[in-house]
Design a protein around this nucleic acid. Structure first.
Lengths: 142, 142
DNA sequence: CTTGACCTTTGACCATAGTCTAATGTTTAT
DNA sequence: ATAAACATTAGACTATGGTCAAAGGTCAAG
């Protein structure tokens, strides 16, 4: 058995010790076993757990959302359909985020094409993008 | 000329009055003209300005990033190449976010396929996705 | 000319997600 | 055996992005 102290866990997972304890307080990770001297000891598996939290957070999930998913996993009363429902909602949210990001991406890409890197910024078409909202700029025709 | 009080501006832009004043304090919108009685009055254009902030924020840009872009626009010393550089960095960031979201999206999509909505959650493959980190689960082969 | 809807300011408060400090205890290495 | 490196707690502090309340001034309608 490969047990880790909080410092080693944190290092392996790429977070700080404070963050580990913070997640524990928030119920995102289980309260770990303790040594005789009250040190937290974690199984190796907690590393993956923490990395998952880290990645999911980067992708825009809140700690509460991540916690919900963990709870769903551990709840013996939760059914596959509960998980399915949750994931389907999330799939929609992610699709929408990807769409919006793609919109702003092509707006910015067009900008770099027409903004050739010479002359004053006042001639740069970024002004147009900034002045209208994104929805409008989508149907903005030349 | 179509001038707006703060309430009308906020309503048109879909934000609260407090948010407008907050953005003003943060330097995201210009300090507006005032009436004799010290009321803020805005030109119609501020609506688009606020809507842009709102949308950009939804897409994950921080208020400081948005402010930077506005500053760049207004700075007479800023050149097209500054704007171009900024937008190119942002383009990279957005592409990366889209990629990461696409990864988690397909993970979730696979889940809903294999998780058919019957039986206990313990049999649901979401456990696998949660146990490894996303990078690992990408190269996880059966 | 008053009532209600609007505006003003200052400053407190909230949630999210940590981050740091102080005071103290434990383990490890030389 | 002692110093360095690590652990513990409680609680204060940070940044971001607002949101609300108090106490008051202004404006438009009846």
């Amino acid at each position: 058995m490969n047990e880790l102290t909080i410092g080693k866990l944190a290092k392996k997972a790429g977070v700080t010790i404070d963050t580990v304890r913070f997640y524990e307080r928030r119920g995102l990770i289980n309260e770990p076993a303790r040594t005789q001297s009250n040190y937290r000891i974690y199984p190796e598996e907690e590393v993956a757990h923490l990395r998952f939290i880290k990645k999911a957070k980067e992708l825009g999930f809140s700690l509460n959302e991540i916690k919900q998913l963990f709870k769903l996993q551990d709840d013996p009363k939760a059914s596959k359909s509960d998980v399915k429902e949750w994931t389907e909602i999330k799939i929609w949210e992610i699709r929408r985020r990807i769409e919006d990001l793609s919109k702003i991406l092509s707006a910015l890409e067009q900008l770099t094409v027409s903004c050739d890197g010479h002359g004053p910024v006042s001639e740069c078409p970024i002004i147009g993008v900034l002045s209208g909202d994104l929805e409008e700029s989508k149907q903005h025709h030349p």
